[in-house]
């Protein structure tokens, strides 16, 4: 059993535990909002801050890695847009677009340290800073054009939300601490590390709680295409970009793993708010979450990780 597969087993187990807890009503559906909020507002920013602030980026190809990973999402946006002439249903197209572009970074964060070591975890945490605003802006733009809305979307509210995204703030604070050399140990660092330790188990449980198997029957043709975009086209694109920019070793494995991560639950929220096909999005997140446990080890193995 390689390191990635060994790391995937507990991650998959915790996701399934989340699903069982919600399905069995041990933790009822309406209670997950608070858990999600705590993870997103406090725990994940603390984890990103802690990981990035204390990471040693000397000797890591952080520059080429970040260029390749950012371009990877731009390429996936262009590839997804190419399917617009084939899909006349606007809301369904927005879900295909989100499915092709969005990634679930938390699954990768949970795997990165055990599968790729400390340098892999450091690189995985870095991805959030440039890509969270980029992906959100692209998805909001597509939803505002092709989403179904009775009233025009509130761009100011969406822009405020992107600017105040706690994940971006956590990354930027971590980068500032890393560069300036402050808060790398001592009281603040210890507290952030302790808080951050809770992030991944909780977010994995919420991913499981959000799985919706009934949504797998929504628009099977477009769903299949969106899943293929996420788990076949995206890893290939990230792999090709990695090779083009001279990314190799652990960094290349992490880059390909970014491409092969499942869809993000945030896409469902955005689709619900901005007139996308939310049910199709729920089906995409569920299908890619399950299939990623085959796709991720395969693509990382292909990349030589």
């Amino acid at each position: 059993m390689n390191a990635l597969t060994a790391a995937l087993i507990p991650v998959f187990g915790v996701i399934m535990l989340g699903w069982v807890l919600r399905r069995s009503n041990l933790v009822r559906a309406e209670l997950w909002g608070g858990i999600n909020r705590l993870s997103y507002q406090a725990l994940l920013p603390a984890l990103l801050f802690s990981t990035i602030a204390t990471a040693d980026y000397d000797g890591l190809p952080a520059g080429p890695f970040l260029i390749a990973v950012t371009l990877g999402f731009v390429v996936m946006a262009i590839v997804s847009m190419a399917f617009k002439p084939l899909i006349h249903d606007g809301p369904a197209f927005t879900s295909l677009f989100q499915g092709g572009v969005r990634w679930n970074g938390f699954v990768l964060l949970a795997l990165a340290a055990p599968a790729f070591g400390a340098e892999g975890a450091a690189l995985a945490a870095l991805v959030f800073a440039p890509t969270v605003p980029l992906i959100n802006v692209m998805c909001v733009a597509v939803l505002s054009i092709w989403g179904a809305h009775d009233e025009p979307p509130d761009f100011a509210r969406v822009a405020r939300r992107i600017a105040a995204n706690p994940l971006i703030l956590g990354c930027l604070a971590g980068l500032a601490a890393n560069v300036s050399g402050v808060f790398q140990d001592g009281f603040i660092a210890d507290t952030a590390a302790l808080v951050g330790r809770a992030a991944l188990p909780l977010i994995l449980l919420t991913i499981g709680a959000g799985l919706d198997f009934s949504a797998l029957r929504a628009r099977p043709g477009i769903l299949t295409l969106a899943v293929a975009l996420k788990l076949i086209a995206a890893p290939l694109a990230f792999y090709a970009l990695g090779l083009a920019f001279g990314v190799e070793g652990v960094a290349l494995a992490v880059l390909v793993a970014v491409g092969a991560t499942p869809g993000a639950a945030a896409s469902y929220v955005l689709a619900s708010e901005m007139g996308g096909d939310a049910r199709l999005m729920a089906g995409h997140v569920t299908a890619t979450t399950l299939l990623a446990f085959i796709a991720m080890p395969f693509w990382v193995w292909m990349a030589g990780g």
Binding site: V11, V14, M16
Partner: peptide, 20 residues
């Protein structure tokens, strides 16, 4: 390990969440 590791991962977050 197949039984304990998912529970260990879940338990790893318990302290911080319970204290918060």
């Amino acid at each position: 390990p197949a039984l304990l590791t998912p529970l260990e991962l879940t338990a790893a977050g318990s302290m911080a969440v319970i204290l918060l």
